[in-house]
Design a protein around this nucleic acid. Sequence first.
DNA 1: CATGAATGAGCATTCATTCAT
DNA 2: TATGAATGAATGCTCATTCAT
Lengths: 208, 208, 208, 208
Amino acid sequence: MNTINGIMKRPNKKNLPPGRLKITQALKTLLEHKEFNGITTAEIAKNAGVTEALIYKYFSDKRDLLHEVLREYLENYGVQLEWDLKGIKGAINKLRKLIWSHINVYATNRVFARILLVEVRNHPDYYRSETYKLVQKYSDTVLSIIQEGIRDQEIRDDIPPKLIRHGILGSIEQVCLSGIIFGREISPEDLTEDLCEFIFKGIERKDV
Amino acid sequence: MNTINGIMKRPNKKNLPPGRLKITQALKTLLEHKEFNGITTAEIAKNAGVTEALIYKYFSDKRDLLHEVLREYLENYGVQLEWDLKGIKGAINKLRKLIWSHINVYATNRVFARILLVEVRNHPDYYRSETYKLVQKYSDTVLSIIQEGIRDQEIRDDIPPKLIRHGILGSIEQVCLSGIIFGREISPEDLTEDLCEFIFKGIERKDV
Amino acid sequence: MNTINGIMKRPNKKNLPPGRLKITQALKTLLEHKEFNGITTAEIAKNAGVTEALIYKYFSDKRDLLHEVLREYLENYGVQLEWDLKGIKGAINKLRKLIWSHINVYATNRVFARILLVEVRNHPDYYRSETYKLVQKYSDTVLSIIQEGIRDQEIRDDIPPKLIRHGILGSIEQVCLSGIIFGREISPEDLTEDLCEFIFKGIERKDV
Amino acid sequence: MNTINGIMKRPNKKNLPPGRLKITQALKTLLEHKEFNGITTAEIAKNAGVTEALIYKYFSDKRDLLHEVLREYLENYGVQLEWDLKGIKGAINKLRKLIWSHINVYATNRVFARILLVEVRNHPDYYRSETYKLVQKYSDTVLSIIQEGIRDQEIRDDIPPKLIRHGILGSIEQVCLSGIIFGREISPEDLTEDLCEFIFKGIERKDV
DNA sequence: CATGAATGAGCATTCATTCAT
DNA sequence: TATGAATGAATGCTCATTCAT
């Protein structure tokens, strides 16, 4: 089977031009130790072994390149999540797994986490990008699990589903953020445990 | 009495040159909406209504200006804290008030909080600055309250005091950080409550 | 034959980018009337008909540009000297020709002389530059002629060869310096005559 | 007697304002280790213990300050020379003493020498300054000694006196310049000896 | 006699971006 | 598919100089 650790290889990754791949890879590598604004196009090109001009052949500008890198991460996470949720029954169980998956991908992909939480957030062009739609799609996934839970009477129906979603995603960010910014360890298991205890106490339906 | 909200006006603030005052004020204002690296000296000067050169008459460079602004905040908070702790008895009670004071100053001075938590932390020159000594002084204050608590048998003596301090200050940062970065509300009362419950359960001495 | 005054045209000169050529040429021209520190990058760029940024594409900084210009001169002189020494027999005769060549290149290339004698000398980065190695190579050439002279019993063997070299090169500088700084005429023939009389009287071996 | 090493104290030196004295002294000190263009007004003021503004109370600009410092040296040298020539008989003997005096003042006052030989020469405002008149006066002194020598038939009358003067002063500069620029020792006795031998052979009248 | 406050013009250097080939 | 050459608009910072007091 064409998988690595349960992650499907994207088939189109193969036929992307080599220069393009080198560029995105170079940015990822550089982002491990520097913040995006501190990285120059010259640096990216040099690390990629291509010329600066090539960046502008494949990406409309420097931020667009960042969005594309983010998109790769998001797509991988999308595939991963789909895999992770397979065979799980019940909305609460699905949410628990999703929370773990989310925290885990932040814990193991600091670059991904940092791009999403600190690099793109304050820039309006991000919200207009194609990449942002992937985040919205993910957001929709979370919402539909919650709605499934309400329908199946696992989750209280007196809190607006979107508020629940906001609570969940906000909490995840909150517990991960300082770990990401200050480079501290993030323990997916522990954080998931703490978070679920806290969240589910509030949203789970107390059967009559 | 010469006070505002219990904060003594620094008498020397009056005889600082007007240009200097305008510059620090301009930076504070700009920091409300932009991050430090995105603010240019030209912008600061224009907002202050002075020339760029004047910045370098009063500050050795752009970062030094940032440190000076931070110092003003720190000095004010130092005075405020001293006031706040007056008349409070018992280490636990003092710590509770200190935690509230700390969270409150972050909640009401977002610029202060952002400088301290995100702008200066990664830059080594900060740790060599005079300003950093104020932070250390504050850190010492926290430590001496903890030691007082241990001595008076309010606080467990089997955890190293510095570890307790690290836990307290780290928790404060953790709960405030996402509020600060994403510009969300911070409720000093609620956060203090949550935090104290969590912290004091761990450190308070169970009387035999 | 592809020569000018016996100097081989460097073949790689042709395929240097035009902008780079324009920049070095512009600096050479400006150095005829101004000292290096008084020349701004803006001036260089304007004279070259390029933008200031291009200077930094080809040279790491302003002084590096100066070193590159100096290197061109040194390389040309190196080629010239090799040519000039061809077919000359005897160390004393070679030294005489070398002295004339040296003085002559100063006399005809004031810019070259001024860079070498007044612009780079006091700056430590020069001594770390690649260009400086060319000067050392030249220095080695002089030394080996002296050693040849000692071996062939043309030159006294009771003075350390390096001291002899120091005397020769120091004298050349001394007699040329005021001409260069005050823009006076330099007569290679006369100066060589005077210098050789003085130098050779001291170092030539009196046959027993 | 009101002298130091034979140099008359200028009586007006006493009633110059202290700030002015501090400024000129500061520049002299700084010139020992840095070139004039590399010295800032801020530096001068700081070293003098006064404010930058005061410089502009006493001097019209930075170069004017330099000229004033030069003037002090020139005035001192003028007084010294007058003293040195006292009681000497014969133009040739006077010239010899003058040459020694000139070289000696360069040897013992590097700052003076450097100002005169490298700092002011290329700047047209120097030639319009009051200070330049002192140099011309000195030049006149030399000329009149030469004319005295011609009149007394000590010196050849078939070379224009001004050409002789040019030769003498030019030679002095020539032999001192490299010592000054490269910071080498200057030996007044030896250089005077060499120079006089060379010069006097050319200009002395061979009696029939 | 001296200062404190402020400035205008300029400096070397950087960087994302463009375009003809 | 990729490059080499070039740029325009800043950027942080410096410095001689002015002027009211």
